[in-house]
Amino acid sequence: MSTTKKIALTGVFTALAVALSYVEFLVPITFVPVPGFKLGIANLAIMAALFFLGPFEAAAVSALRLVLTLFLFSNVNAFFYSVCGALLSLAVMIIIKKTTFFSEIGTSVSGAVFHNIGQIALASLILKGSGIWYYFPALMLAGTLTGTVNGLILRFASGPLGKIFKTSGVQTGQ
């Protein structure tokens, strides 16, 4: 894949990540009474970047998504939680992918669970108490389930997506 194409696709995945974050912002899942619960669909775009482009591009998508969502519709409080979760999640996903021991699904699940761990670790630092870890089992369970679903989505999408990225040049006027 040429550098130009990589840069362009990084942009596309960043746009996708921001759009997915916005969807999650518009439709918060509040019937699960656990603070910090999210579907984590923005991770789909980051994982797509990780699997199709590489760890550097995935990190770029993740960082740009964080900054863009902060300026567009998030707040500083949520931003720091996101940063903490995203850093840990991305690091773990890159390592898991490197081991080639798991597929997209395993990568997604570990990313989701470590996103939760990162956020809850920051929460326990900010709130200066271990009380928040009370929610950890519920968050971990939720993260495992949403991570599995996201991983399956990516698994089934990666076939057609891979074909598109491989065969298509940039086609104009169509």
């Binding site: 080639t100 021991f101 798991f102 597929s103 699904i105 395993g106 699940v109 570990s110 669970v113 089992p137 519920a138 971990m140 369970l141 495992t144 599995t148 991983g151």
Partner: peptide, 16 residues
């Protein structure tokens, strides 16, 4: 790989 995934998910579910 998929077998590993399933084991990972099962372990995480059990632990949580």
């Amino acid at each position: 790989k998929y077998l590993n995934d399933i084991v990972l998910i099962a372990v995480l579910l059990a632990v949580s």
